[in-house]
Write a protein that binds this DNA or RNA. Structure first.
Lengths: 202, 202
DNA sequence: ACCTGAACACCGTTCAAGT
DNA sequence: ACCTGAACACCGTTCAAGT
């Protein structure tokens, strides 16, 4: 057992988040229990409640890390693609790849249902918005002169759509198997949406 | 306490499913526990395991009812709309309305993650497919002569998209509030997809 | 001051025992 | 034959007590 002052509060927090990430990545979100987490970092359950509000807080913070990793991946794509049409397509591919490569962690992000009486924390909402911004930016390039609001709406419409393809496919509900098939429906969605968008907006 | 032969196995099952539906509708999926369910129908926990495999089985069967209710709503829409373009739009609206009016039940359908070692039961998958079929049918009308496979793909691409808009919006992740705004992004998705689809396929 | 670990009020699931 | 309810192995969360 770790004893007083072996680690700072911040160190314990980071250890716990890393352990949480590993547990979820390997065994899925249901394996993320207080007792397991505590034993992984060499402390007892009680200590977790000194650094986190509760387990939901841990979940949210592990999810934040997952969203950060996803943002990083998407940025790599944006850096490589100049043409907005192509870029949006590649962002879709990257999203699906990420979801499929990190299925347990990615699942936890979208499994999580906020308690009805409390709202999503602001810092968490901002991380989600920042993901959408990467797509909005491409819509801005696609047809210059559109209002920011219209681009935001289009990005949300299309990107939620890609997300929907991803969830249903990866949870087996689309009755298609393998990443290739999600890519197929997602590409179809993106290509047709963009074709429609371009033809009606210029 | 109910005693022997008060109800048949089938009656107990139906009572439990109805009680489960009410519990979830009112208090959300986390409230669906074996003890609560048992006490609602006047039996003890043990009895539940005589008529269901486990709690997951109960969840799946309550979900099946929810999917049936959704199918019914969608059929009403199809019956009223002759023009496929309009019909697909109205199906989207009906989907969002259903999700928003039955948020707890609808949430449970998509919260549920199948155990990794066992697949979705066939009877359950068929219910999902039957939902997609309603959209496929409209794609068949939209541009006659397309292969069934292409219509199935298009229906899955677009409908998963509408679903994605719905989940993200209703779980507060889209940063938009109210049903009106989901309808806005969903309409946008449908309209542009269809415009793209029609323009590239004739 | 920091951390423990027992306690509380819950879970899902099983199965010997009662009627 | 049908159903119970105690038992088992878990949960999340709290907080008096120990070092």
């Amino acid at each position: 057992m770790a004893r007083r002052s072996d680690h700072s509060r911040e160190q314990i927090k980071q250890m716990a988040l890393l352990a949480g990430e590993n547990i979820v990545a390997e065994y899925g979100s249901t394996a993320l229990t207080a007792r397991r987490l505590a034993s992984h970092i060499g402390y007892t359950v009680g200590s977790l409640y000194l650094v986190f509000e509760n387990l939901d807080d841990v979940t949210l913070q592990v999810n934040a890390r997952t969203l950060d990793k996803l943002s990083f991946e998407l940025d790599q794509v944006v850096a490589k693609q100049a043409e907005p049409n192509q870029c949006i397509s590649q962002l879709g591919r990257a999203y699906i790849q990420f979801a499929s490569n990190n299925s347990h962690l990615w699942n936890m992000v979208f499994e999580h249902r906020q308690n009805e009486n409390e709202n999503i924390p602001e810092w968490y909402q901002e991380r989600i918005n920042s993901l959408f911004e990467r797509v909005e930016l491409q819509f801005g390039k696609l047809i210059p002169g559109q209002s920011a609001q219209q681009n935001a709406l289009a990005a949300r419409a299309l990107w939620s759509g890609v997300h929907g393809n991803c969830v249903l496919a990866l949870t087996g509900k689309l009755d298609v198997v393998g990443v290739e098939n999600v890519e197929k429906t997602s590409d179809l969605l993106i290509d047709n949406f963009l074709a429609g968008w371009v033809s009606t907006h210029q």
